[in-house]
Design a protein around this nucleic acid. Structure first.
Lengths: 224, 224
DNA sequence: CAATTTTGTTAGGCCAGTCTAACATTCAAG
DNA sequence: CTTGAATGTTAGACTGGCCTAACAAAATTG
């Protein structure tokens, strides 16, 4: 069975369950899923039950939610669609990287496998989306970019941004103003714990910036 | 209210009602709609009732189905989306003109107004889609291409194809093989009524072709 | 113009996906 | 280790879009 035959809601559930463990190990909860999808927990609980019946997740009442291999395959396919579409919207249609998430979220349920193939070719088989997130290959392979959260790195080392979480469009617009994007080079000057501030320096723009904790958690870097 | 807020089914009904009278004056019937949408007449009857309740069509039981101004506006917007998407799929993603209809049929329900605007810009504000059908402007204006059905023209006059109905992908593939497309020049040699054949000549390819009635009804031409 | 065929509508049911409200389980704090 | 708070599940209702079956109206035709 192809991922296209799943309902839109089922595709969303699978993608969300998979995504929850992409950047942190904490497993997803029913409440968190409901929150992120803008529905009530009872709806999610019900949806999970339907997914389990279709063999896409395993779940005992009050227990943890795990994707089966099939579920995982479909989830990764949806992630591939989403990230290719985001890349397409930015590179071909001239969207801002803060504008693509919602559009891709809808399109990913509507595009055919053929269209995804064509978009992938047009873009030259990109391996990262505009936020630096890795794009799974057609067979589901996915190279995680190296990198750790900016909040967690030692000061005074040269760093390069590898990804920026696309969770908050407002924050992305703010980052755009500051010139923060994947491949931007920077150095952490200091973490100031009680002020909850991380000060960074952008050598290329000769600029120092104070970032709050949510920003410092959203930016991933490697040594450069 | 924007057309995007309508259900997918409602968008389909409106577009179909509008389309029914684009190339011929015969008004649409419940049965014909059901047939073309692949559902039962009872479903359409019900759907029409819901549309009427929303003020998008007027309809008395057993009476004719008419779009209100609002309904007409939404229908034309859907036609604009559909034809821009078809053009986009052919010109940007390299689809064949016989492959775009079904894909556009799904995408038209998913794209945002912004995406349509961007696609329109990328394509340079096209006025015809790959089949020669006119693309309504953003404000709903629509210039009907001149032209009459090939089946209805006098023999031995130089003609140019202005549009080819996209109703039948197989026929489009056949036309591709023959080199028949919008802007192709041709002459009708003769209509042979009892054989139900129209013989045409393609001067540019020095080729004579016999077309059956469905083909001759699908091709629209003007004097050239 | 009456009877039959065709076409359209209504009634009643099903499903997915949502809700609210009530209930069950688990977790955490004292 | 008990209890109250937080979290998750179930029950029951509703909606849109579909179905089948029964019925109503209109059109065609002998």
């Amino acid at each position: 069975m192809s991922v296209s035959e799943l309902s839109s809601a089922a595709q969303d559930y699978l993608k969300m369950i998979w995504s929850a463990t992409e950047w942190s190990a904490t497993p997803i909860t029913v409440g968190a899923m409901a929150e992120r999808m803008g529905v009530k927990p009872s709806t999610v609980s019900d949806g999970i039950r339907r997914l389990a019946k279709q063999g896409l997740v395993t779940h005992a009442p009050y227990g943890s939610i795990e994707l089966t291999q099939t579920g995982k395959d479909h989830a990764v396919e949806m992630v591939r669609r989403h990230r290719l579409l985001e890349t397409f919207l930015v590179n071909v249609l001239g969207y801002g990287w803060d504008e693509v998430h919602d559009e891709a979220e809808i399109l990913e349920h509507a595009v055919s496998a053929m269209m995804i193939t064509r978009i992938d070719e047009l873009l030259g088989h990109p391996v990262r989306d505009p936020h630096g997130d890795p794009i799974p290959s057609p067979d589901g392979q996915l190279r995680r970019p190296q990198g750790v959260r900016l909040a967690a790195v030692d000061p005074n080392r040269p760093l390069t941004i590898t990804r920026i979480s696309d969770a908050d469009p407002d924050m992305l617009r703010y980052f755009t103003e500051l010139g923060l994007a994947p491949d931007t080079r920077l150095t952490v000057l200091a973490h100031r714990p009680y002020a909850d501030v991380t000060t960074i320096r952008l050598p290329d723009r000769d600029l120092d910036i104070d970032l709050g904790p949510s920003a410092a958690e959203s930016i991933w870097v490697i040594a450069s």
